[in-house]
Every structure is written in C-alpha cells, then in structure tokens.
C-alpha cells in the first residue's frame, strides 16, 4: 500500500463508527440514489428497516434490561413457574403476522415501482416533474400510482441493448447504431430501457446510484429500465461472479444533459470502427479490463443482439482459459471515479 494512502486509512479507521452508520458519507451509494428506481428502492429499504426496528429494537432493549435485572444474586423476583401465558403467546404470534401483513403491502407497492421490466417509478417521477404540484394523495403510500401505460410514456426514451462478454460490457444503441464498450452514456431525465443478454456466463447489471440489479443470462433476454435525475459519472459493474476478470468488470455511466447527449451521439457516429458480427467475436474473446479504455463504434451490424442470443442458443461458446488470470503482472492503469 503506498504511503500516501496511509493517513486516509487511519482517518477512516478512526471514523469507523461513522462509516458503519453510513451517515452522510457520499460514498454510501445506496443512500444517495440519483434515479427514480434507485430512489424507490432506497425508500422502501428505509420503510422496511423502520418497521422491523419497531419490533427488533424494543425486543433487544427489553432483553438487555431483563439480563441486567434478573442476574442471579440481584434478588429480583424469581418465578420458575412462569412458562406459559395464552395472552403473550397469542401476541407473539399475532404481532409478527400483522407485521408481515404490513410489510407485504409495502412489498406489493415496491415490487411494481421497481419492477425491472416496467418500473412504475419512472412514469411517476416523470409525472411529478411535468405536472406542477403533485396532488395531495400522490405522495401518500396509499394512493394509486400512475401505471406505466399512462400519459407520460410517449416522451423521449433511449433504448440500449447490453451484451456482456468475459469481461466487458457492450452497449448497443439500436436507434442510432452506435456501439460502445465499457462506457454507457445516457441523457438525464429520460427513461432508458435496457435489453440485456450475455455471450458467456451469467452477470448482474448494477449501477448502485441509479438502478438495482437484474440478471444477465446467456441465451435469454432480460429487461431493465432506469432514469437518471442528475448528470454525472456513476459506476456500474457486474454483481454476479463471472470468472477470473470479474473484479475488473466495471463500466462508467455518464449521465449528460439531453443536448450534450445529442452532441455525443453525433460525435460517436463519426468513430472510425464498425461493430460487425466479426468485430464482436474479437471483443468477446476473454479480456480483462485492467486499463479502462472505452471503445466506440459508429455503425452496428443489424441484429447483433439477436445474433448473439441465437449463437448462444445453438451452442457457441467463448471458452475462457481458466488460468489466464494467474499471471497478471502487467503494469496497469485503472481510472477511478470518486
């Protein structure tokens, strides 16, 4: 460990309690969502925690008090025959069941709000942005959310097809024909709809600050939708172990304004390389992404996404030499955000 990091380490050690609490540290990504879906997920994390702590907290405190009070030798009341009580037993079954009922209700709300395929959190956040004052009931948990087939759906939207390989991310923008590798660029406040598949093994798409996880499986296609509410760079990576290069399998998500996004599209469309089926095979060769070097391709051969699925379904395997990661001694440069 280089010496210049040491003071920071000690500092962090000293403030460990603070870090454990998570408090306001910006690095606690899940506490600082910048997208409607992630925000909904965080929201329900808090609700869930709050309801549970209502049960667990008192129980912990009560147990602690009991332990202090009824130690042997403190002459507190000793009642060896206290071993049955209808009322208490009814309560101890009833209260958790009621709690589960309440939690299931919130679960029901949340599962549709954050449904990867069709999160109602996105139209809801768009509706809140476009309509001046949210109605009184809408902020309440007991109000109906606008469904995804509501009025706000027809706005601008970005489609991205995601293919994971060992161990790179290929992002195809089917409308513009641009393909990027290890760099996702999306406009702010615009729903982004992903279709995801894998050329090799299972991965998990995750951008902690923007959206939760969805599995990426070979031969199958999953979907995910997100919306970013603030421009900036966000880290994305795979959450499901996928082999030797897994730890380096990150990508940067850049959220830009819509105007900047259009400019980026124009610029990327001038990139010299093209993404053909053959070019994809080259990318799909096992590569460890030690030096983060995003690639841009101006034009993408039609149906690449379907092509990859079809190839996997008919037995195409991008074999990975198991020991390729054993001798990783190259000097490297990894660009790190935050």
């Amino acid at each position: 460990m280089p010496s210049r990091d040491r003071p920071r380490a000690l500092y962090g050690l000293a403030l460990i309690c603070l870090c454990l609490g998570g408090c306001q540290a910006r690095s606690v990504w899940l506490f600082h969502p910048h997208g409607a879906v992630a925000a909904a997920e965080f929201h329900y994390t808090v609700i869930d925690f709050a309801i549970m702590i209502l049960i667990v907290g008192p129980l912990l405190v009560a147990t602690a008090l009991i332990i202090v009070r009824y130690r042997k030798g403190r002459n507190a009341r000793y009642d060896p025959h206290f071993k049955k009580s209808r009322v208490l037993e009814a309560l101890m079954w009833g209260v958790p069941i009621a709690t589960v009922g309440v939690l299931t209700y919130f679960s029901y709300q949340a599962v549709y709000l954050a449904d990867p395929y069709d999160p109602t959190a996105i139209p809801r956040s768009l509706a809140e942005k476009s309509r001046p004052p949210p109605t009184a009931g809408r902020t309440s948990h007991f109000a109906a959310y606008p469904r995804s087939n509501g009025t706000v759906r027809h706005g601008p939207q970005v489609d991205v097809n995601v293919i994971t390989t060992d161990w790179q991310w290929v992002f195809i923008y089917p409308r513009t024909g641009i393909t990027t590798v290890d760099r996702l660029v999306v406009p702010v406040d615009t729903p982004v709809h992903f279709r995801l598949t894998s050329a090799t093994v299972v991965n998990d798409f995750l951008i902690p600050e923007l959206v939760g996880e969805i599995d990426i499986m070979p031969g199958m296609r999953t979907k995910l939708a997100m919306i970013a509410s603030r421009p900036g760079n966000y880290r994305g990576y795979s959450a499901n172990f996928s082999g030797g290069g897994f730890s380096w399998m990150g990508f940067t998500t850049t959220v830009v304004s819509r105007r900047a996004y259009r400019a980026w599209t124009r610029k990327a469309a001038r990139a010299p390389d093209r993404m053909t089926y053959a070019a994809f095979d080259k990318i799909a060769k096992p590569t460890i992404n030690l030096a983060e070097k995003p690639m841009y391709f101006s034009r993408t051969q039609k149906g690449l996404f379907d092509h990859v699925i079809r190839r996997v379904l008919t037995g195409r395997v991008y074999e990975t030499p198991l020991r390729m990661t054993e001798n990783m001694t190259k000097p490297l440069y990894v660009k790190v955000l935050h």
Partner: peptide, 26 residues
Amino acid sequence: YALGFMGMTRRLDYIPFVQWRPPLIA
C-alpha cells in the same frame, strides 16, 4: 453491512474503489 450499502458486491478479489477501504480494514 456498511459495505453493502456502499455498493460493494461479493466475491471481489480486487477492490476497485478506495472508499471501501476503511470498513475493509475494520
């Protein structure tokens, strides 16, 4: 638990983000 909220996933043999260091030292 804290690292989970900081976004750290499991089975990492290399930790890409230095802000995860303090809890890891703990």
